[in-house]
Nucleic acid binder design. Structure first.
Lengths: 149, 149
DNA sequence: ACTAAATAGTGCGATATCGAACTATATTGG
DNA sequence: CCAATATAGTTCGATATCGCACTATTTAGT
């Protein structure tokens, strides 16, 4: 592949990397001290798609190693934002459920983030962001599949 | 802001986050053991834009805290991929220069990555990726500016 | 010139991430 | 039904990231 074609993909991943970093930093500045996007994301996922997921399902959903999810969940449990219940279908496993405190934490975080997103929406119209999503999703799905092979 | 508008931006950052994670993992699997994208990126930056940059300039270019860059550079130096020379213009500072080994490392990494990108190019045409870049750059610039305020 | 404020870089501590090896339970093949 | 294999989750160790506080030097204000 000629260098200038390589450059397109390099540039893409570079932009994505910087956006991820800046977005994460901005978000975490609005979260309670010591909490990270990884914590919020798990709570948000459980609210949106329903709790009772297993740690492995969560690790798979976020594409992180299961040891990382173990660590994240331990942190959430110690803050009383999630709890564990035995998995009735599998004695090796367990299910992650939200506590009321966990649901509130997520609500508050979204509230704290809203002004930030509103400011962004004023600069970057929603349509412009929406227009990116199909291609981003396609790339994400491709990378996800390529990972297995 | 209505929830469904919030969702657009949430989804965007979510996709970006997963792509960053998957892209990084795929890339790092092709790098020599123990080396990360952060190491490669610094070498690549120095090759493309010229070496002799200061640590702070690099930290700023990658939008990482300066302590992180100190750490990354120490790692690169210990592997003899970069060296430090005094900054003639500022006694507090220093300049990062590439070693031959550093240049070779970067060349080899790009070579090792090429097949991966080629496979990706077969699935996601270059034009489709290129079409994303203007909006991504706009968002990156916005986030970068918003950071200062 | 001199003091005060700003800036470049580092050291340290806390936490996150992640791979390898391990334990316990489930599943599969004979 | 039992042995072999696979899977869920954890523990442990290594390294990355990053905020805070610190030192050294430079720049700015008077």
């Amino acid at each position: 592949m000629p260098d200038r074609n390589l450059l397109t993909y390099f540039t893409f991943f570079n932009e994505v990397g910087i956006i991820e970093q800046l977005g994460r930093a901005a978000f975490e500045a609005r979260l309670p001290d010591g909490f990270l996007v990884s914590h919020f994301s798990v709570l948000n996922h459980l609210v949106r798609l329903g709790d009772g997921k297993t740690p492995l399902e969560l690790a798979s959903a976020f594409q992180v190693p299961k040891t990382t999810m173990t660590h994240t969940l331990a942190r959430l449990q110690s803050a009383d934002l999630v709890a564990f219940v035995p998995n009735p279908k599998d004695g090796r496993s367990k299910c992650v459920v939200l506590t009321d405190k966990g649901r509130n934490f997520r609500e508050d975080a979204i509230g704290a983030l809203a002004p930030e997103l509103q400011a962004m929406a004023d600069a970057i119209p929603k349509d412009r962001v929406e227009a990116l999503l199909p291609a981003l999703q396609e790339i994400r799905v491709y990378l996800d599949r390529a990972r297995d092979t």
